[in-house]
């Protein structure tokens, strides 16, 4: 599913290049549930952005399934994100003026799916994450856990190959965190490859594979 080779990326800070990823070699097979951990500044967010085709890299290569993700135009990157990748963020990132159904349906809008079909699929997904009765609620009428469920529904609505979760439980209490992780495990069991970036060991321990980044390199790669 994911194959990284000698992946390097640096940012320019105060006129000098600051290497963030210093040669990552990583393979994540289809159907895996993997956690990427590391302290802040270890490069885990950057890695996630590269995996999610939100950011480019300097050298090496990244293959997502049968696609070589390299030197893409913005339009092509957007298309690939829409088709193959779903995102879940720490702060949910729902559009405040759209209700749950509309938020979940948003990726399908950019996929060019007709409105009725979009909403049908969005409501299906909301049922699946247990929020069928909250479809017409605005984000500010939902609890943190419910918002994250809506966000997960949104990330799955295009049937992506890969679900990327960036600190998905970072803004939630421990009980809700557990519920969300249960949901992600369930999603993974249904066949979607899931990569979770976290610094919480409780979250990482729910993942069969744990990759620890230190200073832009893979320091540890555990399977359990």
């Amino acid at each position: 599913m994911i194959r990284l080779r000698e992946l390097r990326k640096s940012y320019v800070m105060a006129g000098r290049p600051l290497p963030v990823l210093k040669g990552i070699d990583l393979t994540i097979p289809t159907g895996e549930l993997a956690a990427i951990t590391g302290s802040s500044g270890s490069g885990k967010s950057t890695l996630l952005n590269v995996l999610g085709i939100l950011d480019a890299y300097d050298s090496g290569s990244y293959e997502l399934g049968d696609v070589l993700v390299k030197d893409l135009t913005e339009a092509r990157a957007a298309e690939l994100r829409n088709k193959y990748v779903g995102f879940v963020f720490q702060s949910f990132h729902l559009l405040p003026y759209k209700n749950a159904t509309e938020n979940v349906a948003l990726p399908l809008y950019y996929a060019g799916i007709p409105r009725r079909e979009r909403f049908r699929r969005a409501n299906e997904l909301l049922e699946r994450v247990g929020l069928g009765d909250r479809a017409d609620h605005l984000p500010n009428q939902l609890s943190g856990g419910q918002k994250q469920r809506v966000a997960i529904a949104r990330s799955l609505v295009t049937n992506p190959r890969l679900l990327l979760a960036d600190e998905p439980t970072g803004a939630l209490d421990s009980a809700t965190s557990k519920e969300i992780m249960d949901l992600l495990v369930e999603v993974n069991r249904a066949g979607t490859t899931v990569v979770v970036v976290t610094h919480e060991s409780v979250v990482a321990d729910r993942c069969p594979r744990r990759i620890r980044l230190v200073d832009g390199l893979i320091a540890e790669d555990q399977h359990s």
Binding site: G52, L54, E74, A75, A78, E79, R81, N82, K83, F87, H93, L94, L95, L106, P107, Y110, A111, R154, T158
Partner: peptide
């Protein structure tokens, strides 16, 4: 940003 992440082109 969210729209871009879920597939909006510039």
């Amino acid at each position: 940003g969210v729209r871009r992440a879920v597939g909006a082109t510039p």
